[in-house]
Every structure is written in C-alpha cells, then in structure tokens.
Write a protein that binds this DNA or RNA. Structure first.
Lengths: 211, 211
DNA sequence: AGCGTACCGTACCGTACGGTACGCTCAGTA
DNA sequence: TACTGAGCGTACCGTACGGTACGGTACGCT
C-alpha cells in the first residue's frame, strides 16, 4: 500500500510539504498554469510520485488546501474575564488577522481555485476552504463575543448573527474585489485602520456601557 | 467584415441574445460543462457562427457577462428631498435587490467564471463583473446617501466609505459562502429580514436625529 | 432562374493535459 | 557486492476541447 496523503489524514512528510508549497507557489504565480507537469517540474519530482502520493489532481489540490489551512490556525487561547480594552484588543486582532489572510496572494489564489472547483461538484475544496476560513474564525470569535456579553460589555441574542455582522464590517467588499482581480493592495497601516474602524462600528452596534 | 458583438459594443441581435442565454443556462446548469460544442448544441447554432459572432471563447464569455449585466441595471431615479421613512425605504430596496442578485444562481455562476478567469489575466471578466455589480450599485447608492446627508438624516465624511460599510452589513458572508459552494438558499422572507437588519444597523451607525 | 449571404450540422485538426509506463540513479541493508 | 525500494526524468497514450473547413439549406435580391 502506498502512502497516500489524501485518503488518510496523515500529515504530509517534509518532502510532500515541499511539493504542496510548490503547488501554492504555482497557484500564486499563475493560476491557470497549474498542471501536473508544471507541479512536477517546479517541485523537482516525477509525476508518478505525485500520483502515488496524492492519487489524482483533485487529491493534490485537496492536500494543498489542507496544508495551507493547517498553517493558518493559531492558538485558541480561551478568554477569561474581559474588560473593555481587552475585548477591543481581541477583536482588533481578529480583524487584522482576517484582513491579512484574505488580502494575501495565497488566500486569493486558493479561493479562486476552490471557487472555480465549486462549480463542478467533485471533491469539495470549497467546503474545506470555508471550514478553515470563514467558519474557523467564527468559532474563534464567538467565544470572545460571549465572554464580552458575560462581562456585560456586549448585548446580543445570537452570537452567530453578531459574528456575521462583525465579519461583514471587517471584510466589506474587499474579498470579492480581490477575487475578481482588482489590484487593491492593502498595506499594514491601512489594514490596522480598517480593522479599527470595523471594531469601533461593531462596538457601537453591540456594545453597552458597563452598568 | 463580420458582425462581431464583442470588439464593437453593438447590442447583440435577438438571435445572439438567445445564444448568450444558452451560455448562461449552461453556466448555471453545470459550470465546467461550458464548452463551445455544448453552447452550439444548446443554442442550436453552429460553432462556426459562434466564432464569427464572438471571435473566440473569451469573446463569447465577455459578451455573456455584458449581456447579463445589461439586464440587471434598473432605472437611476434621482433622489430629491428625503424624509427618514423614504431614506430607509430606498436603502431597504437596494439591500433587497442586492441580496437577490448575489444569491441568484446566475450571479453565482457568472461570478465563479469571472473569478476563475481572473487568475489567468486575459480579457478581464472580473473587471466587467465588478463594474456592473459592486461598483454600479455603489454609484446608485451613494447619491441616496448624500441626499440623506443633505437632508440632515445621515452624518458621514466620505460617501464611499459609508457605502462600503453598508455593503458589508448587507452582504456579510453570504456571497463568499455561495461562491464556495454552500447550499444556503435564502427565501424572499429571509432576504427582507436580512435587508431590514442591515438598514437598521447602518442607520444606527450613520443616522442622526433630525435637528 | 441565378447568385450571394447567413447559417446549421458535422467532420476534422492540433494541442494541451491528466494519467501511465519504464528506465535510471542512489541510499540503505545484509 | 548484490539486492531492494523510493523516487527522478522522460516518453508515451487517450481524450477533451478550442478552433477551422466544408457541404447543405433557406432566404433574400436582381
């Protein structure tokens, strides 16, 4: 039996990671040049090895998406008691991180691939990207919101709905514009300002003065 | 000289429109079955005619995007003096329309194609989609916002920034989730509720009691 | 009637790409 | 040294698809 890094959920070996990085590199460099030949050439490996490791093209893409996803997750530090400044800071961090992710070339390229794939329903990259992007951050933000509510700093009924508003205030039209090819490069300063504005707006909508 | 519906900006003939509708139908039905053969078959026309009319595959796609765009635009009724109820109503209309558009299968399919295309930079469908989607609605909403400000109902410095916030509050995570393949069908009721919530939030952020 | 034009249907061509086969090298092992 | 297996490079196969060519038909126009 060969070592498929797709069917089973084994972590890819170092060599395999290098291959997946090559795939990411190609995606970023030129989205539609993403052929098995090109991958093999760039990764200096043989196509046969690619097929042995990843099964087929879809398996390679899936493994790549998972590999990238595995790098994005940071620690889930559970929030304890919050004061207003800490809450603001935590939200600001999330907003900055999210804006950095979605405006990064890797994320743009990966989302393009996954979206193109979502049209033809085989092996849903879209689901994986959603699970590790939009939903993963939701699961990380919602506890913070709930801690904020527990501390009397926020008021909302449904944390999912509150998070979605936060998401909208942070992302606005940025992701769709990038995906559709607009240049639009955000520097760190602009991201910080954007994140700050989003947090201010969110707190204006959901915050309440501590009684 | 042949009648190219691409190079020049002539409106497509009725027959050509039928062809473009066939393309849209194929896009919606099965995104990656979008081959020139399939289009010709579905439109009951010959491939040669397709090439004569649209130049090449890209030209056909471009014409299709333009054709769909030409159908979305509604009238630009200039806003005069606004009272609070009218402003809210206008914003609600925009929000409902926008949500209907982005959640429609045609929009999803078209955006998928355009986004996939945006990876490989030839003939930017992405630009056309942006111009006729995100930016077109921006140009329609901003005058309303400015009229609202003129009437003392809204307060903001930058109408573009205010619009982007509105855009984020309305769209939130819906478009990206749909593009990535989540099922997520919104019925008319949910859209109306969503739009209402977004407008409430927007007014909470930017509204001001009339002095 | 004769001719041109527009178009349909279909056959065809070239190429790019997913997937496979095979020979070669080289490290590890006994 | 001989054997094994992993993996590189390359050649190869089949097919799908973009694009072209061509015969046939319907409909003007003169």
């Amino acid at each position: 039996m060969q070592t498929s890094a797709t069917a089973e959920q084994e972590a890819p070996s170092a060599r395999q990671q290098a291959v997946l990085d090559a795939v990411l590199g190609l995606m970023v460099a030129d989205g539609d040049q993403l052929t098995m030949d090109a991958v093999a050439r760039r990764a200096s490996c043989s196509k046969e090895t690619l097929y042995k490791w990843f099964g087929d093209r879809d398996g390679l893409l899936t493994a790549t998406v998972r590999w990238q996803a595995s790098r994005v997750h940071a620690g889930y530090d559970a929030a304890q008691v919050l004061d207003g400044a800490t809450l603001r800071e935590r939200l600001q961090d999330f907003a900055v991180t999210w804006l950095e992710v979605i405006s990064g070339p890797t994320s743009v390229a990966l989302n393009r691939i996954a979206i193109a794939h979502a049209g033809s329903h085989k092996s849903n990259l879209g689901g994986i990207v959603l699970a590790n992007g939009r939903f993963a951050i939701g699961e990380r933000v919602k506890p913070v919101l709930e801690a904020g509510r527990a501390a009397g700093l926020l008021a909302f009924a449904d944390s999912e709905a509150a998070f979605r508003t936060f998401f909208g205030l942070v992302g606005r039209d940025i992701q769709i514009r990038l995906l559709l090819g607009e240049a639009l490069d955000l520097d760190a300063d602009e991201i910080r300002r954007d994140a700050g504005r989003a947090v201010d707006q969110f707190l204006a909508l959901y915050g309440q003065a501590k009684p």
